[in-house]
């Protein structure tokens, strides 16, 4: 087994362990919450005591806790998420479209901003003290620190109401009823609705990447190896590329982590733009104590973060030859 494989195996084992812990925490926390999914039905007086007992037995909620836990583990690790209590349809059928909606909005936004603001950050870090540097830092920090719903509402007011360029909310026009993903997302109507929330999320994420890239380059700028690169006769842009390559690691890590967190959606953004994403769905599910739905949603989110972490580790080892001792796995 090479050094790199051993490293990979170790990380994998840790990830699996983390997943188990996360899954158990979800289970325990949900049971600790007061009340149950049926409480509202009971208080409304729609159900008799006997019906409640029957339903509880149907969902296996009358069994001892450890047995519930075991069957929960067994199902969730096999991605069998069961039926939503309140919606009476398979959990996956509820979650999958919302998740896709969220990802189709946030993944392209994150990738775009990671590339653009990192490049801009490297450039302004190299030309330290320029007007562009100050302006970009102020602008992105402002966008980052303002709650996303404020920026969102501002954009809606300006671009939707005043200029009437784009629709204010929703994913498609009310009259549209597309079938299947391709028809849904590959249409001008969708694009029309897409552009505003996309822009807001790009701006929202830009600050972190810009600052990370800028700081990395600023730190590397005075280093000896860049002086040698310069003495070798590399052009300004080639030197900047080397400085950028050397400060890429934190950006990469941050990108991977953010990518994992995207599975949680941006709840505020989804609310402002009326975007049917996973974040809104989760809030609703928690309010209604829809156990299977919450469990499944939280499990997917936790899994995404854990996998993203794993990817970050592997990427790190791949891009930084000094990480693994034998230098294995390096390009």
């Amino acid at each position: 087994m090479s050094e790199f494989q051993r490293f990979l195996a170790k990380r994998l084992a840790i990830s699996i362990l983390l997943t188990l812990v996360a899954v158990s925490v979800i289970f325990v926390v949900l049971r600790l919450l007061p009340g149950s999914p049926f409480e509202s039905l009971v208080t409304a007086g729609n159900l008799s005591q006997q019906q409640i007992t029957e339903i509880r037995a149907m969902y296996g909620l009358d069994q001892p806790m450890w047995r519930q836990y075991l069957s929960y583990l067994q199902s969730i690790l096999l991605f069998q998420f069961g039926y939503s209590i309140l919606r009476s349809q398979p959990v996956w059928g509820v979650l999958a479209p919302r998740l896709v909606n969220t990802l189709i909005l946030l993944v392209p936004a994150l990738v775009t901003t990671a590339v653009l603001s990192s490049l801009l950050g490297m450039y302004v870090g190299w030309n330290r003290g320029s007007k562009l540097e100050k302006l970009s830092i102020i602008a992105t920090t402002f966008l980052r620190s303002t709650p996303v719903f404020i920026t969102g509402i501002l954009f809606v007011i300006v671009f939707a109401y005043n200029l009437e360029l784009v629709p204010a909310f929703g994913m498609r026009s009310i009259s549209a009823s597309p079938e299947g993903y391709v028809e849904t997302f590959a249409s001008l109507d969708f694009l029309h609705h897409y552009i505003l929330p996309f822009t807001v999320s790009v701006l929202y994420y830009s600050g972190d990447f810009l600052l990370l890239a800028r700081n990395g380059v600023v730190e590397k700028r005075g280093s000896e190896f860049l002086k040698l690169h310069r003495a070798k006769g590399l052009s300004e842009m080639q030197q900047l590329a080397r400085a950028g390559r050397n400060s890429m690691l934190p950006i990469l890590t941050y990108f991977a982590l953010r990518l994992g967190m995207i599975f949680q959606g941006l709840i505020l953004l989804e609310v402002v733009f009326g975007w049917p994403g996973i974040g809104r769905e989760l809030v609703l599910a928690i309010q209604q104590q829809d156990y299977p739905l919450v469990q499944a949603a939280v499990f997917i989110m936790a899994l995404a973060v854990i996998v993203a972490n794993l990817v970050a580790d592997v990427l790190y080892a791949y891009f930084d030859p000094t990480v693994s001792t034998s230098g294995g796995g390096a390009a």
Binding site: E224, L228, H229, G233, N246, D320, P321
Partner: peptide
């Protein structure tokens, strides 16, 4: 630079690009 005048830097430890 380099074609006619080459340079051996001071601190060998830091003057090579680590990646």
């Amino acid at each position: 630079l380099w074609e006619d005048i080459a340079y051996i830097p001071q601190s060998a430890m830091d003057s090579l690009d680590p990646v």
